[in-house]
Simulated assay, not measured.
Amino acid sequence: MTEAGTSALLGPADIRRLAGELDVRPTKKLGQNFVHDPNTVRRIVTTAALTPDDVVLEVGPGLGSLTLALLPAASHVVAVEIDPVLAARLPATVAERAPDLADRLTVHNSDALRVSADQLTRQPTALVANLPYNVSVPVVLHLLAELPTMTKALVMVQAEVADRIAAGPGTKVYGVPSVKVAWYAEARRVATVPRSVFWPAPNVDSALVLLTRRPTPDADRDAVFALVDAAFAQRRKTLRAALATWAGSADRAAEILTGAGVDPSSRGETLTIADYVAITRTAGKALR
């Protein structure tokens, strides 16, 4: 990070001053917990391993702590902020604290769950964000689906959610988020972030999850995701029973599973994304 970028970072006093100036009271509804520790944002940027050519998408920049750390490390930062007050203030904060980098910032006052590629003048190559706890998984899945140019992501989420996203088959926390994220990317939990670096401090710790995009399977995504939802809706049941409604009957489910090379007595939590793709393809062939 450049010296200009380092000196511009916000500390606890800056965060409280800005919040007071804007009369901002962090809300649970928007999942607002502002990072006030410069070392944490430096660590995030370092872990993201950005290049000078990267266009970074930041969701929920808030008061600008992470934004200021990202600007020296990338060619441009596209910030998406749902709060109109915060969105309006962010360019001014950057102009005050890092004037030589102000032209690298574009702010969109919008909901990240509604962002699409055609709305953005610059196509992101990376997502780096402190995501609101209440919508973190839907936001990740939506952006991976909508922004094919985004080849990597480093997101800070609730520690429990990080474990779910990065979980592998056969583990207790492996579930729908794990499988659906795996459709797009390899996920790895890379660090824990203590609650003390936020204002207000949340009730749980956070964690950083690194996502590396990989080629998506050659299959109907919606059909695969519907299968995943069905398999985990009754995760204690065998797949033969859990997929009975999806397939039309338990016997039909067993036939499809066997045809895909999957044991009908296994459970959804033991299957990889490749297994779900194979089952979907087998079911599709059976309908022809």
Results as ranks from 00 to 15, higher is better:
Thr2Arg: 14
Glu3Cys: 00
Glu3Tyr: 01
Ala4Asn: 13
Leu9Tyr: 14
Asp14Trp: 05
Asp14Leu: 03
Arg16Gln: 13
Leu18Ser: 08
Ala19Val: 04
Gly20Arg: 12
Val24Ile: 15
Thr27Leu: 11
Gly31Thr: 12
Gly31Gln: 13
Gly31Glu: 14
Gln32Met: 02
Val35Gln: 04
His36Gly: 11
His36Ala: 13
Asp37Cys: 11
Thr40Asn: 02
Val41Gly: 14
Arg43Thr: 12
Ile44Gln: 04
Ile44His: 07
Val45Trp: 09
Val45Ser: 05
Val45Ala: 14
Val45Tyr: 10
Thr46Met: 04
Ala49Tyr: 00
Pro52Arg: 13
Pro52Ile: 10
Asp53Met: 11
Val56Thr: 10
Val59Leu: 08
Val59Pro: 01
Val59Gly: 04
Gly62Arg: 01
Thr67Lys: 03
Thr67Asn: 08
Ala69Val: 07
Leu71Trp: 09
Leu71Asp: 11
Leu71Gln: 09
Ala74Pro: 00
Val80Gly: 01
Ile82His: 04
Leu86Ile: 01
Ala87Tyr: 05
Ala88Pro: 00
Thr93Arg: 00
Val94Lys: 01
Arg97Tyr: 06
Ala98Val: 05
Leu101Arg: 00
Asp103Thr: 14
Val107Tyr: 00
Ser110Gly: 11
Ser110His: 14
Ala112Thr: 06
Leu113Val: 09
Arg114Thr: 12
Ser116Cys: 09
Thr121Asn: 14
Arg122His: 13
Ala126Phe: 06
Ala126Val: 11
Leu127Gln: 02
Val128Tyr: 09
Val128Trp: 05
Asn130Asp: 13
Tyr133Thr: 11
Asn134Ile: 09
Asn134Gln: 15
Val135Arg: 15
Val135Asn: 08
Val137Ile: 15
Val140Ile: 15
Leu141Ser: 02
His142Met: 06
Leu147Thr: 09
Thr149Ala: 15
Thr149Phe: 10
Met150Ile: 06
Met150Val: 07
Thr151Val: 06
Leu154Met: 05
Val155Thr: 08
Val155Met: 07
Met156Ala: 06
Met156Cys: 06
Ala166Leu: 03
Gly170Ala: 14
Lys172Pro: 00
Val173Leu: 10
Val173Thr: 12
Gly175Arg: 05
Val179Trp: 03
Val181Gln: 05
Ala182His: 01
Trp183Asp: 03
Val193Lys: 09
Val193Phe: 05
Val197Gln: 08
Trp199Thr: 14
Pro202Leu: 09
Asp205Phe: 02
Asp205Lys: 12
Leu211Gly: 01
Thr212Arg: 15
Arg213Gly: 02
Ala223Phe: 04
Phe225Lys: 00
Leu227Ile: 13
Asp229Glu: 15
Ala230Pro: 02
Ala231His: 04
Phe232Ile: 03
Phe232Ser: 03
Ala233Asn: 12
Gln234Ala: 15
Gln234Met: 12
Thr238Gly: 13
Ala242Gln: 02
Ala244Gln: 04
Trp246Pro: 01
Trp246Arg: 08
Ser249Asp: 07
Arg252Lys: 14
Glu255Leu: 07
Ile256Gly: 00
Gly259Arg: 14
Gly259Leu: 13
Gly261Asn: 09
Gly261Met: 09
Gly261His: 06
Val262Lys: 07
Pro264Gly: 12
Pro264Asn: 13
Pro264Trp: 10
Ser265His: 00
Ser265Arg: 02
Leu271Met: 07
Leu271Ala: 06
Ile273Cys: 10
Ala274Leu: 08
Val277Tyr: 05
Ala278Gly: 13
Thr282Pro: 01
Lys285Met: 03
Ala286Gln: 10
Leu287Tyr: 01
Arg288Pro: 14
